[in-house]
């Protein structure tokens, strides 16, 4: 039997294809729990999980909390405004304080790339990276893989395009790695100001124009435009962005007839994606949300449920 041998989930690079298949298969089993009347299993009774969010993230935090509760774990959620971080406590102080609570695992969202790696070095507890800076958001990529596998029956050989602010997106960082690892072909698209230097070194190709980029693709992933990046340096206005890089019905005409459209949420409707497309027949955005809970249950189970 395949064993999952990790204490932390810091990024996709650490996972093998076998690891990823095991996570997805485990999530499949947990998806069933979520459809029961009593959505609870005793699997992680007595385990404690700390959700530590240095950035606001209602969705990811809620998803991890729900996952932990469905597995009967004790959870404690801290956000930056409640912790003393804002008052100048360093991450190493925080790590020591958290360790004193003796949790089994810490789910960390942090604005600095590499912060989970730093925490993992200083903690005995495991660490799940729930998004670090512009680096990775591995549980999002795993739920994306899970959603694609459920809809398309496979991942290998599929052609995927990711459109938006690739340079500042940890979702893209993890999705590119995960998709490549599982044998998909990945194209990134967006204004050249938002394409990272040497992104080809991650194994993707760049087609800046979305009209050309989405041709023949099985999956379109739209990224959220972070409104706080509207300094006028990366793009002139939201209006112009949505005109040239937003996904709308017109643009979608050039896509494959069985394409699926994904978005990590929350959506800026009318900016990177129009209402009708987000709610339209190709959209699997709501599936992503429910699959997210199952994936996070699988991760918690595999990382701390084994003992």
């Amino acid at each position: 039997m395949y064993t999952f041998n990790h204490k932390n989930l810091l990024g996709i690079d650490q996972l093998s294809v076998g690891d990823i298949n095991m996570i997805l298969d485990t999530a499949d089993a947990f998806l069933e729990i979520s459809s029961r009347d009593i959505k609870k299993a005793p699997t992680l009774r007595g385990k404690s999980i700390v959700n530590f969010f240095y950035e606001p993230s209602a969705r990811t935090k809620a998803s991890f909390e729900m996952a932990a509760k469905r597995l009967s774990a004790d959870t404690l959620s801290l956000s930056a405004n409640e912790s003393s971080m804002v008052k100048g406590e360093t991450l190493i102080d925080t790590a020591q304080n958290l360790q004193a609570m003796n949790p089994d695992i810490i789910v960390l969202r942090h604005p600095s790339s590499g912060a989970p790696h730093f925490l993992a070095k200083h903690l005995e507890a495991g660490v799940i990276n729930a998004g670090d800076g512009m680096h990775e958001h591995p549980s999002q990529a795993l739920l994306d893989l899970f959603t694609i596998r459920k809809k398309k029956g496979r991942i290998k050989g599929l052609r995927v395009v990711i459109i938006g602010d690739i340079a500042h997106s940890r979702v893209a960082g993890s999705d590119i790695r995960a998709l490549k690892k599982m044998g998909a072909e990945v194209t990134v698209s967006g204004p050249p100001t938002m394409i990272p230097t040497d992104v080809e070194s991650l194994g993707t190709q760049v087609v800046s124009d979305p009209t050309r980029a989405l041709k023949g693709k099985d999956v379109i992933m739209m990224l959220r435009i972070q409104l706080e990046r509207q300094s006028g340096i990366l793009f002139p206005s939201l209006r112009e962005y949505s005109n040239f890089f937003g996904l709308n019905k017109e643009l979608l005409k050039g896509a494959k007839k069985d394409v699926i459209i994904m978005h990590p949420g929350p959506i800026n409707r009318g900016v990177e994606i129009t209402w009708d497309v987000a709610d339209g027949p190709f959209s699997v955005i709501l599936d992503q949300v429910s699959n997210g809970v199952a994936i996070r249950m699988a991760l918690l189970y595999l990382l701390i449920g084994g003992e």
């Binding site: 590499g114 670090d132 512009m134 990775e136 990272p196 230097t197 040497d198």
Partner: peptide, 15 residues
């Protein structure tokens, strides 16, 4: 340094 490693690590680059 801005290059393949800054992209991989998600760190802002100094070209």
């Amino acid at each position: 340094h801005e290059g393949s490693i800054s992209t991989r690590l998600g760190l802002s680059g100094i070209p």
